[in-house]
């Protein structure tokens, strides 16, 4: 099953790059002209997100480097304990929605320190894989169309993250505790 899906992942991009232009050519589309017309938008979209990305990454960078994150984790710890989340994983839980690179760094450190087949290592792996960098995604996606008022999007994203986090703890304990 895993091998089949991973083969599908490997083949997906080459298949798209082959199939789309060939199909379009058969439908008499000027394939190269279409490609260039579409590709033109790539630059403007990427440039448009810069101010949003700078604002968000600077705030997250300052929060991490100053040590505020550890203080926040210490405050949050009593609230998180009843969920059965080991304290070592709290920094990862906080970092996961903020920064993909930061979270991956913490996950790698936890896996290497506690071992990949320990409870902490397994939990870190599941948490890393089961939620996304909500802040980063919102920043980039809304930034690309110039939207500054997120309405309930952030609340919604964080709700999904928290449910995903709690579910990670429960399912990991259940799956490896059987």
């Amino acid at each position: 099953m895993v091998a089949a899906i991973s083969t599908l992942s490997d083949w997906a991009i080459p298949a798209l790059i082959f199939f789309i232009p060939v199909y379009a050519f058969l439908r008499r589309v000027g394939v190269y002209e279409s490609f260039v017309a579409g590709a033109q938008e790539g630059f403007t979209t990427a440039v448009k997100i810069i101010p949003f990305l700078v604002g968000m990454l600077v705030a997250i960078g300052v929060f991490r480097a100053s040590g505020a994150m550890q203080v926040f984790a210490a405050w949050l710890n009593p609230l998180i304990q009843p969920l059965g989340l080991p304290a070592e994983l709290l920094p990862l839980a906080i970092m996961r929605p903020l920064s993909g690179g930061g979270a991956l760094g913490i996950t790698a450190a936890l896996i290497n320190t506690y071992g990949p087949d320990s409870l902490v290592g397994r939990l870190a792996s599941v948490m890393q894989g089961s939620t996304d960098t909500t802040f980063y995604v919102l920043t980039v996606y809304f930034g690309s169309v110039g939207i500054r008022k997120y309405r309930y999007a952030l609340l919604l994203g964080l709700t999904a993250d928290i449910v995903g986090l709690v579910a990670s703890v429960l399912f990991t304990n259940w799956y490896f505790g059987r």
Binding site: I17, A24, A37, G38, G42
Partner: peptide, 21 residues
Amino acid sequence: AFELVGLMALWLGLLKIAEDA
């Protein structure tokens, strides 16, 4: 953002072909 430029161009180009077809 700049690392995104090339990938954006590639996929938006392919997407445009797919749309036109």
